[in-house]
């Protein structure tokens, strides 16, 4: 009986941790997405104000175009994670694909690190890769069992 209660408690704590993870990461993704989108707007605002915008890295027009597209995707992704906080059968799938996305983001950073093209940001790339892999692991470990989020 006690063992069953303990298992139930562990399940509830895991579900709560998963919701916090989804909410936290989802919120950050929405903010990051909007930040990427405003890069595009800032870059092209130079055409109206005549001033050269100060961007964190030397973007060109196509780079901000791609950044804006990635930003919009991040807003959608973050929204999906925020939706997963409510639970439901889709919450598990959102976590699985979020783990995959974070793993892919880590892999392309590691490739960028190996290639050496971004040598000025080498340490940042590795730190980001490690962080994203840890987040992916958290999604894998805290992901509820099938039908677990329906409760």
């Amino acid at each position: 009986m006690g063992r069953r209660q303990c298992g139930r408690k562990g399940f509830v704590m895991r579900a709560r941790a998963y919701r916090i993870l989804c909410g936290g990461v989802g919120g950050l993704l929405v903010v990051a997405g909007l930040a990427l989108l405003q890069l595009f707007l800032r870059f092209h605002s130079a055409g109206f104000s005549g001033e050269q915008p100060e961007l964190p890295v030397p973007f060109d027009a196509w780079a901000v175009y791609m950044a804006a597209m990635a930003g919009c995707a991040c807003v959608g992704w973050g929204g999906s994670l925020l939706g997963a906080v409510r639970g439901g059968p889709a919450a598990r799938t959102v976590g699985s694909f979020s783990a995959l996305a974070f793993a892919l983001m880590a892999i392309y950073r590691m490739i960028g690190w190996i290639v050496g093209e971004y040598a000025g940001f080498a340490r940042l790339l590795r730190m980001e890769a490690v962080l994203f892999l840890l987040i992916a692991l958290a999604f894998v470990w805290l992901r509820p069992p099938r039908a677990g989020m329906e409760a």
């Binding site: 783990a99 793993a103 880590a106 892999i107 590691m110 690190w113 190996i114 590795r126 890769a129 490690v130 892999l133 840890l134 992916a136 692991l137 894998v140 470990w141």
Partner: peptide, 16 residues
């Protein structure tokens, strides 16, 4: 999934 991610993590930490 955990094994794959841990392997990648080891690579990210050990590559340098």
């Amino acid at each position: 999934g955990s094994l794959v991610l841990l392997l990648l993590l080891a690579l990210a930490v050990g590559l340098p």
